[in-house]
């Protein structure tokens, strides 16, 4: 079944690439739509350049740092909001504003407040924070009160309640929040880099590609961003699942 799904997906990707190739042939203008083959050629050139890796590292470190920071702060805030109602009330306006404000507004504000190299960290953090916070709080709130009563009768310590009651309940909420937030942080982080143009970032590379109408570069960097984002998503999710599995094996 799993193999069948993989084969189907491979066929779908191959069909999409073929469609892309056909479209580029029909249009016949590489500036407008470069062919996948040209992108592959340009990408194979880029990966031998030192700047390629430094740009990937630059963006990866900052976006990941922003995301991890959002996870940590989101968990702390959600725990506080679950524990104390006043904390939830006090956090509500911030979370509502962050959720509703267009990312471009934050990017422009951050450019005034911060230097451009800190921009992806802050934007990734802001995009992921309300998602992690909201989901974690929903997870805490959905904890079975009857199980908590049982824990009180059996005099469970806080650690026991956390490991055996809260974490298994929060798990699906946390995984879902991370999955959604990860994709969003990459999109917002790179968008912030394109506007802020920090030196040596993937966003700067994309901006330059646009500036010089280097469509093959634009597509190559986009492919790189998608690949790095998917890879990080998979690695992070594996890490989270391993962490929960270890807790369940305690």
């Amino acid at each position: 079944m799993k193999n069948k799904s993989k084969i189907e997906k491979t066929i779908a990707v191959a069909a999409a690439l073929l469609l892309w190739q056909l479209a580029s042939v029909i249009i016949g203008e590489e500036v407008l739509l470069v062919s996948p083959f040209k992108v592959l050629v340009r990408l194979s050139e880029l990966i031998f350049e030192k700047e390629f890796y430094s740009a990937v590292a630059f963006s990866f470190i900052r976006i990941t740092f922003g995301f991890v920071l959002a996870v940590a702060v989101g968990i702390i805030f959600a725990t506080a909001a679950y524990r104390w109602h006043w904390a939830e009330t006090m956090l509500w306006p911030y979370m509502s504003v962050i959720k509703a404000t267009p990312v471009a507004s934050f990017i422009i504000l951050c450019l005034i407040w911060l230097n451009s190299s800190s921009l992806p960290v802050f934007i990734s953090f802001l995009m992921a924070l309300p998602i992690i916070y909201t989901n974690m709080l929903a997870g805490f709130k959905s904890t079975d009160t009857k199980l908590l009563q049982m824990a009180d009768i059996f005099r469970f310590s806080f650690k026991k309640k956390l490991v055996y009651i809260y974490l298994p309940n929060i798990k699906p909420y946390f995984i879902s929040a991370c999955s959604v937030a990860l994709g969003l942080t990459w999109k917002a982080g790179i968008a912030a880099e394109i506007i802020g143009i920090p030196d040596g970032s993937m966003g700067e590379m994309l901006y330059n590609a646009k500036l010089y109408l280097a469509t093959a570069d634009l597509f190559s960097w986009t492919v790189t961003i998608v690949c790095v984002s998917i890879l990080f998503d998979k690695l992070f999710m594996k890490l989270i699942n391993t962490m929960f599995k270890r807790l369940e094996d305690l």
Binding site: K146, L147, Q149, M150, I153, F154, K160, Y164, I165, P168
Partner: peptide, 21 residues
């Protein structure tokens, strides 16, 4: 100590762990 009207067990853990905790 109690057996409640519902079982109130930690469902994602083993029978052994539920007793041990």
């Amino acid at each position: 100590s109690a057996v409640f009207q519902e079982d109130r067990l930690c469902e994602s853990f083993s029978a052994f762990t539920n007793v041990k905790i």
